[in-house]
Write a protein that binds this DNA or RNA. Structure first.
Lengths: 356, 356
DNA sequence: GGGCTTTCCTAAACCGGTATAACCTTCACA
DNA sequence: TGTGAAGGTTATACCGGTTTAGGAAAGCCC
């Protein structure tokens, strides 16, 4: 209804000048305790809070952090990372007087344009860089624009920004070890998007883990989407020597892969072991429950937010390493089918008569 | 590196006063075409864009819209609605000079506090109200704060805000009809969160559809989370007269429900039909593919954004009805098991010997 | 008691825009 | 030829804060 109170209203109410009110709210010394209390009381009574837009003008601070998500809208919904990541960021921001500005863009051109716009309009004090790509153009752009940033993962280009990272290879190695222990020799990987750093890294870590255990990695490319995951699974299972275990680069692909295998008549996990990555909430509610590698997006969010705020407020730029990713074993893995038993129990044969 | 250009820089560069530059960028008449071009050229050369913070001061506009999401962080990740909704909103906003401000809060207290803060700080010009609850306190609060809003769904309390809605009952009725056609008589519903309007509405629409077709609805409460969906499914299948079809109030619960049934030894869909709601991307990549009711969150986003902008910019407040929700039939439904066949093929019996 | 700090406070400029009143030309018209 | 209107432009106040310079009052010292 009535106009929002301003600093002048508070000053008038407390019988002081605007400047003093500002001093109090910025915790600056040189205000007597008595007046301080009077000002705080006046502000509380009027329900006044400093207007960040006005503050921005003089402080050259936007009181906001940005997140620009480049996503094919089609596969956006199946990715469980962002909502949890954002809630982690928010948990930190809510007490720090900053808000989060979110943008979802369909392609790289719009993405870079969005950063330029945020910069030109002084909308944000810093940004989170997620889903790092190879030779990611955002790093140089943000450096040029002078916008502070933190990267989720270590870029493959020179970057002065703090890095938040986690040893994900640890979990991947554990997956492969466990599968080898169970007796699997033909272990395949359905990889994520090759343009993304964590797509190829997970692929490399998988390959390395398999080789380290004396095996020969089988890898087929995909892009983190359930659709690609399903196609890759179909291709793998159509091979002469089909793998007995498939390690998917994320949970949505693994879920789609499980469905493809089941449709082909595979009994899971007896005839095919499957694992996912990223430890989505859904994974434990599948049948069989999906073994996966934990990731904790909310922890990424909290940590990234702390780092970014530290960088902005104090200039402190320190890399943070999150705890190594842990393998979460569940019912979707088992020993491979025995070679002799496979004759009577070939999945494709039992599958053929099925109705769909 | 160098200071961001200001309107004065542009004015100086073009050899005119600040006012004229402002006129040009606000599309006001009374500027000669020649000067107009000169000003635009100068602005382009300097890469200048009006600073929204500064504009806010005089225009009393924040150039931002807000979305406050109240979510138990634990179930945040499994909900595919928000990412797609946001991308729909963004598609509209990106050309309109406004950004989206996102907040994720863990409880109602923080939620309301967040709205108050956004208002007191003039952070947003309007907000989206999603996940409407019974007697939703946000409606009155926003009216009191004077913040424009649009609601996704029709509130059960007096509200002057525009309503974006979709006849979801249409899809639910289609689901029930189809199941009845197939011969199901014991059709159950695993309901969503009772505190949410769409939780109870879907439940009511289900019950009504079943009764209209001459049946007796079976309903068990849940809360949209996979965990609750799994528990509800277990409870239903443990009944003496277990349902032959289960209609879940959203896809994540349906996925969890499918897993529970499969774990109990049910062959899907022959022995149990299952449907979801909200038409998530994942649903089609399951086995069997999950029949569901479409929803198109991105369309909600685009529409809500248009409505909210119209309300803010022109005061136009018109309700919008999206196309009725359509049933998406898929492989997860089939005729119920025949009563005679059920003796030899009782799920629990074949399940018992299974290893886990 | 005069000079010097210190403490507490105010006035005013400033941030980068918008909005308004006023000004100067130019031109049409009587 | 004087007058008024229209078109194009500038000067300036203002939005709601922060920041700086400076001033009044009180305290300290010798």
């Amino acid at each position: 209804m009535s106009r929002r109170p301003t600093i002048s209203d508070v000053a008038h109410e407390a019988g002081v000048s605007k400047g003093l009110v500002s001093f109090v709210f910025n915790g600056r010394p040189g205000v007597s305790p008595a007046t301080r209390d009077r000002i705080l009381a006046a502000a509380a009574e009027l329900g006044w809070r400093p207007n960040p837009n006005a503050r921005s003008l003089t402080t050259q601070t936007a009181y906001a952090l940005g997140l620009v998500v480049l996503r094919d809208p089609a596969i956006l919904g199946s990715d469980p990372f962002f909502p949890a990541f954002i809630s982690g960021v928010e948990a930190v921001l809510s007490d720090r007087g900053r808000v989060m500005l979110l943008s979802v863009v369909p392609d790289e051109e719009r993405e870079l344009e969005t950063y330029r716009k945020l910069a030109a309009e002084s909308r944000v004090d810093g940004v989170f860089l997620t889903d790092l790509r190879h030779h990611d153009p955002r790093i140089a752009l943000l450096a040029e624009l002078g916008i502070p940033a933190v990267t989720l993962g270590r870029p493959d280009v020179p970057s002065g920004f703090p890095v938040i990272d986690r040893d994900y290879g640890h979990g991947i190695t554990a997956v492969v070890s466990r599968l080898r222990e169970l007796g699997h020799t033909r272990i395949a990987h359905v990889a994520g998007d090759d343009r993304m750093l964590h797509g190829t890294r997970r692929r490399d870590q998988f390959a390395e883990a398999v080789r380290a255990s004396g095996g020969e990695p089988i890898v087929v490319g995909a892009d983190f989407s359930p659709d690609a995951g399903a196609q890759a699974t179909r291709a793998l299972l159509a091979r002469d020597e089909a793998p007995t275990a498939i390690v998917f680069a994320n949970d949505p692909m693994a879920i789609a892969g499980m469905a493809v295998a089941q449709q082909l008549g595979y009994r899971l996990p007896e005839q095919l072991s499957i694992t996912g990555m990223d430890g989505s909430e859904m994974s434990q509610y599948l049948f069989p429950p999906l073994a996966t590698v934990g990731n904790d997006p909310a922890e990424w969010g909290r940590t990234a937010a702390h780092s970014l705020l530290a960088l902005i407020e104090t200039g402190a730029s320190e890399d943070v390493t999150l705890p190594a990713a842990e393998f979460i074993p569940r019912g979707s893995i088992a020993p491979p089918p025995t070679p002799d038993g496979s004759a009577v129990d070939t999945p494709q044969q039992t599958a053929t008569p099925s109705t769909r």
